[in-house]
């Protein structure tokens, strides 16, 4: 029996110029060129689309959900966020230090 399995390709879809490519799913295909065709048929039947990327699933390296340490912050890094600051909008003029 012929293999109907083939490889899988992850599909990234850009709905309009200027927008990011977003992951929308994956397709089975015998080669990248067919993967683009399958991705068009599957994910661009009606929604706007100006560009599609396909990437072999096996070429995607991903983090492990089971590894809680990968994204853990070793200490408070709120200074990286605008909300991490609370300087007032107005201050009382201070007296000149003489």
């Amino acid at each position: 029996m012929t293999d109907t399995q083939w490889e899988t390709y992850e599909v990234f879809h850009q709905s309009r110029r200027g927008r990011p490519h977003e992951h929308v799913g994956s397709v089975h295909a015998p080669d990248p060129e067919m993967a683009l065709q399958m991705a068009r048929d599957q994910f661009a039947r009606r929604l706007e689309c100006v560009s599609i990327w396909v990437v072999r699933t096996k070429d995607v390296t991903q983090t492990d959900y089971q590894d809680p340490n990968f994204f853990s912050r070793s200490f408070d890094k709120s200074y990286r966020d605008p909300k991490g600051f609370n300087a007032p909008a107005k201050i009382e003029p201070s007296s000149d230090p003489e």
């Binding site: 012929t2 293999d3 015998p30 080669d31 060129e33 067919m34």
Partner: peptide, 16 residues
């Protein structure tokens, strides 16, 4: 649909 799957597999092999 077998011939289609076979043709696609063959094309992929040649391109490879």
């Amino acid at each position: 649909g077998l011939w289609v799957r076979e043709a696609l597999a063959e094309k992929a092999k040649r391109n490879h």
